[in-house]
Design a binder for these strands. Structure first.
Lengths: 149, 149
DNA sequence: GATTATTAAATGTATGTACATATATTTGCA
DNA sequence: TGCAAATATATGTACATACATTTAATAATC
């Protein structure tokens, strides 16, 4: 559906404004698709992304700082997202022995098992930008990089 | 800066995953730019977008339903955003005479004045996707529409 | 006309975002 | 050594998001 119809707006001032609105709208749309997918597994999107970073580090620990560095949203509160994951016993948290200010966070066996199930489920889904060809996806990335220059 | 460096990830699985991550990241980036811009004016981004819809309707009223229809994020809570705007006396809210379930919401003179100041300030800023040419912006919109097909 | 269904908005709860501040630990330097 | 600065994380508050439930008014059906 064209962006004009999605938000019931007849026209945009120019191509720039239209692309801007479309970018925000489409990113929200994608995030909602993903959230709905993760919901039956008891995970929110930021929780999933955090777990995935921890699996990437496994069996090495991650610190809160490392999570923030790799998260898409730098200003979100990694501490509290880890709180939620810890409450579900998907991660462990303990004071780093070599630097007692820092906290070593590791994905637990339960967490690895959950991500494993998600891998299977995601392979059977068409989440994300699957409607684009590889060339179009690459073109999109280039345009987005240019926006942030 | 390339997306790989922004989130400190060496490589992506494929062009699709890279475009997906880039899309979410860039939309967040744009929203943060805008939020920072609106902050000195005492507005959040959803509050600004709501006010702008109301100005589009002015002098006709809008209902909460109309706001939801036109908002980029359909699931956000228009009622409570209007609460905040009403507390700042930027909008008025009164029961619709012809349908007492509905509420007529109108932008106030203060609200119009604030948006006027924002128009001036925004004209002097480069918010949004200004780094693209018109052709690139149009191309971006087409790619985004295709994602949501 | 009374009862049920639908609609419009508000409210409740859990989570996340944004940003400021607090607490504890470590580092650097006078 | 002692004390200030820097670092790592946690906490507090306001706002927004996501989604379920509630309340009130209107429409539809019997």
């Amino acid at each position: 559906m064209k962006i004009e119809d999605e938000i019931k707006q007849a026209a945009f001032r120019d191509d720039h404004q239209k692309a801007h609105v479309n970018l925000i709208f489409t990113a929200n749309w994608l995030q909602q698709q993903q959230s709905a997918f993760f919901k039956p597994f008891g995970l929110t999107l930021p929780q999933f992304n955090t777990l995935r970073i921890l699996r990437g580090q496994h069996p090495r620990p991650a610190t809160v700082n490392l999570l923030i560095e790799r998260m898409l949203d730098k200003t979100s509160n990694a501490s509290r997202i880890v709180d939620k994951l810890e409450a579900k016993q998907l991660v462990t948290r303990c004071v780093c022995p070599s630097n007692r200010r820092a906290v070593d966070i590791r994905i637990s066996p339960d967490g690895l098992e959950l991500l494993g199930r998600l891998d299977v489920a995601m392979a059977n889904e068409h989440l994300g930008v699957q409607n684009l060809t590889s060339a179009e996806a690459a073109q999109l990335s280039n345009l987005l990089d240019k926006i942030r220059d």
